[in-house]
Design a protein around this nucleic acid. Structure first.
Lengths: 202, 202
DNA sequence: GGCATAAGCGGATTGCGTTCCGCTTAGCCG
DNA sequence: CGGCTAAGCGGAACGCAATCCGCTTATGCC
């Protein structure tokens, strides 16, 4: 079990193979990082502190994870994999089997739930390399959603609409809405309202 | 003409009054900053360089503009005022007089044009203090749009829908789409498609 | 005009993300 | 089993945003 569960998305069928010490360090780093997040919060997740706490140099952190956003993303990776498995091969309505519009709805609500569960880590992950590194997950979500939209609304620009549907679910937007006093339930209901526009054909 | 044109939004009817040297410095800073942006690009807009180039201390920059995002926002302020004037009291369809759905469409396209014209500065302005400082402009846009949505779709959660319509127009989203090869025209057409969902009542 | 005072100023300092580069060592090969 | 080599490592150094605090000065009041 050398290389599993903690590289970015699932787009590296056969990477060059990872050296044993590198794998060991990856584990140490992720353990230290999640411990820091759990005990002191995301804002205390500084590269230097993680490195020290894991007993490695900061250079190693950057080699493994690219930047702080990449580290945050790696911490979210397990949940991300579960999510991807759920909408790619899990039970409907999230997984295959339900009509596209119901799958879209289920998917957007799943993304919303994820943001509610991990707002701060996601916000860090969205930063900086946002659409490059984190782009791995975004790309998968976008492709999935675009396919469903193409089914639900043939002839539309499904790729654009997928972006437009994902944009309101960014961690920073939702965090901002929550700060303004908007409840998760209201956000969920709002999502459904947005989707009502999809039900009726143009 | 002490205090005009370069404080944040238009929410300070009668601020405490600005000292003369402070106003002079504000001008020097903004001039230096826009010169740097014009000649070396936004990425060269560092607080230290602006301060040096304007002949003031960095502390003064922070006193005036809060942070780097605030400075970027101030550089966009003139255009922002024009935009606000246009949709609040200009000619239709952007200004009052047209039916709400046409005004919504005109407004979103105006925002899109703005992003196409100033992507990098807007991206800096969106950073960090994003929804605090820059929140001034966002708040105005949101309030305007929510009012129009409430007119166009009575009974809906206009405040949420306004967020959802504004989210795809963030500078970072549009920059990302452009990097993927999506043309401005396609984005504009996509916006119209999103609005089609609004035409047909739920 | 002179003075009191608070607004303003500036640059040294701090903190942190990121980069760089010379050293170490795991993994392979003869 | 010993040596080769490239992957990996670590931590010093850098750049830059942001803060802090003692000094300066514009402004209002007598």
């Amino acid at each position: 079990m050398a290389n599993e569960s903690t590289d970015l998305p699932m787009l590296h069928p056969t990477e060059p193979i990872e050296r044993a010490d590198a794998a060991r360090n990856r584990r140490k780093i992720l353990d230290a990082a999640s411990h820091i997040v759990a005990t002191k919060g995301v804002e205390a997740l500084s590269m230097e502190e993680v490195a020290q706490s894991a007993g490695v140099g900061v250079g190693t952190l950057y080699r493994r994870f690219g930047d702080r956003a990449g580290l945050a993303y790696a911490l979210l990776d397990e949940k991300e994999r579960e999510l991807q498995a759920a909408f790619m091969s899990g039970p409907p309505p999230l997984g295959p089997g339900a009509p596209p519009l119901e799958r879209i709805r289920a998917f957007l609500h799943a993304l919303h739930d994820r943001v509610e569960a991990q707002p701060t880590l996601l916000m860090v992950a969205e930063m900086n390399s946002a659409h490059a590194r984190y782009g791995g997950a975004y790309g998968v979500h976008h492709a999935h959603l675009a396919a469903l939209v193409a089914e639900a609304r043939p002839g539309s620009d499904a790729s654009y609409l997928a972006d437009a549907l994902l944009a309101p679910l960014s961690a920073s937007m939702i965090t901002y809405q929550r700060q303004r006093g908007m409840s998760p339930e209201r956000i969920g209901a709002g999502l459904d309202e947005v989707l009502d526009g999809f039900t009726s054909d143009a």
